[in-house]
Amino acid sequence: MKSVKASENFSCNITLMCSVKGAEKSVPYSWTPRDPHASETNGGSILTISRMPCEPDLPYTCIAQNLVSQTSSHPVHVGQFCTDPGASRGGKTGETVVGVLGEPVTLPLALPACRHTEKVVWLFNTSIISKERDEAATADPLIKSRDPYKNRVWVSSQDCSLKISQLKIEDAGPYHAYVCSEASRVTSMTHVTLLIYRESLGRAPIIRFLL
């Protein structure tokens, strides 16, 4: 990855660079999948992607080839590099939620018509948790890998709030929820800050962070 830049309309521009060690400058490059929101420059070695939070997190693969051989990179999901698009420039302020280490917590979104909402995406650090209409809530592999024994994080089917079981210290921080339209546009955004306390320490937070 070369750079990431967020804009005021919630979009995020990610630039990926591909190269082959020891290869000649004339080596042609290409990328899959072919994305209408992406553009190639510098002979195809640089890919610039414009992505919205509501759009699918596609895996991008660079392919370098010459007359005798071809090699491919590992797929890259760019959503992990852009989990704060427009968060500091708009949306509802939300609230601060206090949780207890090891206990469950709910980060409220309170969408009465959650079942009829096209899609809801919760973002936290490099994790993406989403729920589409008429489908069960899903979490990307980054979320699942945080707890290999159980999926601790999911989106409520009732009001699209975020549910976290067995809180860990690393769960503390700012969360951003995006409500999506059928055209994958952001219709509203909410911020929720999660603080985590150790029960024996009363009201003293375990960690502090900068928003």
Rank of each mutant, 00 (worst) to 15 (best):
D147N: 15
I49S: 04
A38R: 06
D140T: 15
T93V: 00
T41S: 15
E40G: 06
K92M: 05
V68A: 10
H116I: 00
S145T: 14
D159S: 06
S88P: 03
Q80S: 12
K144P: 07
E55W: 06
L107P: 10
C82V: 02
T48W: 03
T138H: 07
I129D: 01
L123C: 09
T138L: 08
L162N: 04
G79H: 08
I63R: 13
Q70D: 00
P174G: 02
V105F: 09
Y175H: 13
I129M: 13
V98N: 04
A136Y: 09
K150R: 14
N151R: 09
G173V: 02
C82W: 03
P141Y: 08
E103W: 12
H74S: 13
L162P: 12
P148V: 11
C82T: 01
I143K: 08
N125C: 03
I63E: 11
A113H: 14
V76N: 03
H116K: 11
E40N: 11
D84P: 00
T96N: 05
V98L: 03
G43M: 07
A38Q: 08
T138E: 08
P75Q: 04
T83S: 06
I169E: 15
R115K: 14
D171K: 12
K144V: 09
T93A: 05
H77P: 02
E170W: 12
L47F: 09
E135L: 14
C82Q: 01
Y149F: 13
Q80R: 14
V78K: 02
N42L: 07
G99N: 02
E55N: 04
S157K: 13
E103K: 14
A64I: 04
V105A: 05
I46R: 08
P148A: 05
G102V: 02
L111K: 11
L58Q: 03
T117W: 09
P141H: 09
V76H: 05
V97S: 06
L167F: 07
S73E: 00
F81R: 03
P53N: 04
R152W: 07
V121P: 10
S127K: 12
S145G: 11
I63N: 14
L111R: 14
K131Q: 11
H176T: 09
R133Q: 15
G99H: 04
